[in-house]
Amino acid sequence: MAAAAAAPMPVAGAGWWDLVNGSTAWQDGIFLSLAALYGLIAASSFIQVVRIQYRVPEYGWTTQKVFQLLNFIVNGARCSIFAFRRQVHQVNPEIFRHVILDIPGLAFFTTYAMLALFWAEISYQARGLETEGLRSGFYTINGVIYAIQVLLWVLLWHNPNPSMIVLSKLFIAGLSFSAALGFLLYGGRLFFMLKRFPIESKGRQKKLREVGRVATICFFCFLARCIMMCFDAFDKKADLDVLDHPILNFIYYLTVEIIPSSLVLFILRRIPSKLRLAQYHPLNSG
C-alpha cells in the first residue's frame, strides 16, 4: 500500500515578528536596550570632552571638542527619549511628540555636517583659499534647515494629515542624501589630497586611513538613513514613530546612528598632545 503523504511541518517561529511587536515586555526591553546603547555613546563623548579640556585647556572650543559635545547632546537626547518612550508617546498635543522625536535627528545632521565642514576647511587652507565663507555658509544652511523644519511643524499642527507627515519625513531623507554627498565630496577631496602629499610619514598614513574610514562610514550611514526614511514615508506599516514597531526601531537606529557613531568616535578617539606653555603659540584664523 502506498505510504501516506507526509503532513507539512509547522513553520518554526511563525508569527514571531508580530509576537515581539505586540508584546509590552519585548517593546520595553528593546527600547531600554536602545536607551542603554545611546547612553554609553553619550558617556563616551562626555569623557572625551573632559579629557580634551584637561589635556589642552588653552585651545578653547576647538572643532574636535564641539563635535564631541554635540555627540553627547544628541545621544543623551536619544537615550532619554527611548528610556521614556511610553511617556513620549502620550504627549499631547501630538505636534509636541513630533518635535521631540525630530530634534535629535536634526542635531545629528548638524553634528556630522560639522565634521564635513572641518575637512572642507582643511582642503581650502591647503590650496590657499579663504575659509570664512565655508563657516558662514554652514551657519546659514543650518539656519535655513531648522527654519524649514519649524515651518513643517507649524503646518502639521494646523493641518495634521498624513501627507504633511510624509513631507516631513521626505525632508529628513533629503537632508540625509545631501549629507551623504557632502561626505563623498569633501571626504574624498581631502583623502586624495593627502594621498598626493609628497612627504611620507606615519602621521600622514594615519590621517589618510582616518579620513577614508570616517568618510566611508558617514556616507553609507546617511545614504541608509535616506533610503529608510523614504521607505518609512511611503509604507504605513513601517512607521518608526509608534510603540508597536520596536524591531524596526532597533534595526533603524542601530544601523543609521548607533553603529556609525560608535565607529566614528572610536576612529577619532585620539586627543591633542599636551603642550608646554613655552611651546604654545596661538594660531590665527588662517
Results as ranks from 00 to 15, higher is better:
224 A>N: 06
29 G>K: 07
211 V>L: 13
143 G>M: 01
29 G>N: 12
24 T>G: 01
154 V>E: 13
241 D>W: 03
100 I>C: 05
237 K>E: 13
272 P>D: 04
109 F>L: 07
144 V>G: 13
247 I>M: 03
234 F>L: 03
264 V>C: 04
279 Q>S: 14
133 G>Q: 01
261 S>A: 15
257 E>S: 09
160 P>Q: 01
229 M>I: 08
71 N>M: 10
23 S>K: 01
13 G>N: 12
284 N>D: 10
144 V>E: 10
177 F>S: 06
71 N>W: 02
199 I>T: 08
85 R>S: 01
44 S>M: 05
9 M>H: 11
122 I>C: 04
212 G>V: 02
271 I>W: 03
117 L>I: 09
255 T>F: 07
139 Y>S: 14
114 M>C: 12
284 N>G: 13
275 L>E: 08
59 Y>I: 06
70 L>H: 01
270 R>G: 07
226 C>W: 15
204 R>D: 00
181 L>Q: 10
41 I>N: 10
208 L>S: 05
130 E>G: 03
196 R>A: 11
228 M>Q: 05
92 N>P: 08
209 R>Q: 15
75 N>H: 09
71 N>R: 04
206 K>F: 11
180 A>F: 13
232 D>K: 09
154 V>G: 11
153 W>A: 08
103 I>G: 00
212 G>T: 09
60 G>M: 07
218 C>P: 11
81 I>S: 05
128 G>L: 05
158 H>P: 08
111 T>K: 02
91 V>N: 01
21 N>V: 00
230 C>R: 03
126 A>L: 15
129 L>C: 09
35 A>E: 00
231 F>H: 07
280 Y>F: 12
249 N>Q: 10
40 L>S: 08
173 A>D: 01
94 E>H: 10
147 A>S: 04
27 Q>D: 07
277 L>F: 06
243 L>M: 02
254 L>F: 12
139 Y>G: 10
178 S>Y: 14
140 T>K: 13
184 L>E: 05
253 Y>P: 06
59 Y>Q: 07
213 R>G: 14
80 S>N: 05
221 C>S: 10
125 Q>P: 00
176 S>Y: 14
91 V>T: 03
243 L>E: 04
197 F>K: 08
154 V>P: 14
2 A>E: 14
139 Y>I: 08
125 Q>Y: 04
228 M>H: 03
91 V>S: 04
237 K>C: 09
164 M>W: 03
21 N>D: 07
224 A>C: 11
8 P>Q: 02
34 L>K: 02
26 W>C: 14
13 G>C: 09
88 V>E: 06
261 S>R: 08
241 D>N: 12
233 A>W: 00
249 N>F: 01
154 V>K: 11
172 I>E: 05
211 V>S: 12
197 F>C: 13
59 Y>E: 14
132 E>H: 15
272 P>R: 04
226 C>G: 15
160 P>I: 00
79 C>W: 01
110 T>P: 00
63 T>Q: 08
208 L>F: 11
70 L>Y: 00
54 Y>L: 15
267 I>C: 09
60 G>C: 09
140 T>S: 12
107 A>G: 07
263 L>E: 11
8 P>L: 12
186 Y>L: 09
121 E>A: 04
71 N>H: 08
278 A>E: 15
206 K>Y: 07
212 G>P: 02
36 A>H: 10
258 I>M: 04
